[in-house]
């Protein structure tokens, strides 16, 4: 009798699902066993992926089979990789700062440009364009509706931003409070933030519910296969 890989996968999947769901009746060793094994398996898998899909193709392969120019270019990241590996040894962990500095600098530049080009300018422009009456015909809605929606979007954007303005000045009684206009705007901003967070909560719940449905469906299908 040949046991198929799908059957093995189904059995293991069923077991691990049950072990994890056992947490609903309380914390228990079975749940912990499943979680620890999961962490170990995931880490091992990620390490294998990092080796086969990062180290091998991007570092070792060019170093072995690459041209002289490729090898010379790969020498620097190789050195950086060795420096990062120094983090393993506490005595030499300080050397890893060099490579980490490079990573941080590169990341900073990328997020600056991305935030500026990809979010700040387009989103501000879109907030302005929300009042574009020409879009009414494209969306097949009335101009009034465009302005109405645009006003809400603008108000939500501005008041939400104002809510995150925490600059305050001392009052006569010694308390620190924001300016009255900002305080009022922040209060309105809280309404928009509450709505947004409520929307996100509903989305998270929907995602979690879908995951639960998928798991229960998998359990039912496991029994259905027999």
């Amino acid at each position: 009798m040949v046991i198929s890989l799908d059957l093995i996968t189904s059995v293991i999947s069923f077991l691990f699902t049950l072990l994890i769901l056992s947490y609903l009746i309380g914390d228990n060793p079975l749940f912990r066993i499943a979680v620890y094994i999961f962490v170990g398996v995931s880490s091992g898998y990620v390490a294998a992926v990092a080796w086969w899909q990062v180290i091998m193709p991007r570092l070792i392969y060019p170093l072995v089979y690459g041209s002289v120019l490729e090898r010379s270019f790969i020498a620097i990241p190789l050195l950086g990789a060795l420096l990062i590996l120094m983090k393993i040894f506490p005595r030499w962990a300080g050397l890893a700062r060099i490579a980490m500095a490079f990573l941080v600098g590169a990341g900073a530049a990328v997020i600056i440009a991305g935030a500026l080009i990809g979010t700040l300018i387009p989103q501000i422009s879109a907030t302005i364009n929300a009042f574009d009456v020409n879009s009414a015909s494209v969306r097949n809605i009335s101009v009034v509706e465009v302005i109405f929606n645009g006003a809400f979007i603008l108000a939500g954007t501005v008041f939400t931003l104002i809510y995150f303005h925490f600059g305050a000045s001392p009052k006569a009684d010694g308390s620190m409070r924001r300016l009255g206009l900002i305080e009022t705007s922040a209060w309105v901003g809280r309404i928009f933030i509450g709505i947004t967070l409520g929307t996100i909560f509903a989305g998270v719940f929907a995602a979690a519910l879908t995951a639960l449905i998928e798991r229960i469906s998998a359990l039912i299908n496991f029994f259905g296969n027999f």
Binding site: Q123, I153, G156, T157, F159, T160, I193, I195
Partner: peptide, 8 residues
């Protein structure tokens, strides 16, 4: 509504 808050 949520779009305004999310954009902010």
């Amino acid at each position: 509504l949520a779009l305004g808050g999310a954009r902010g």
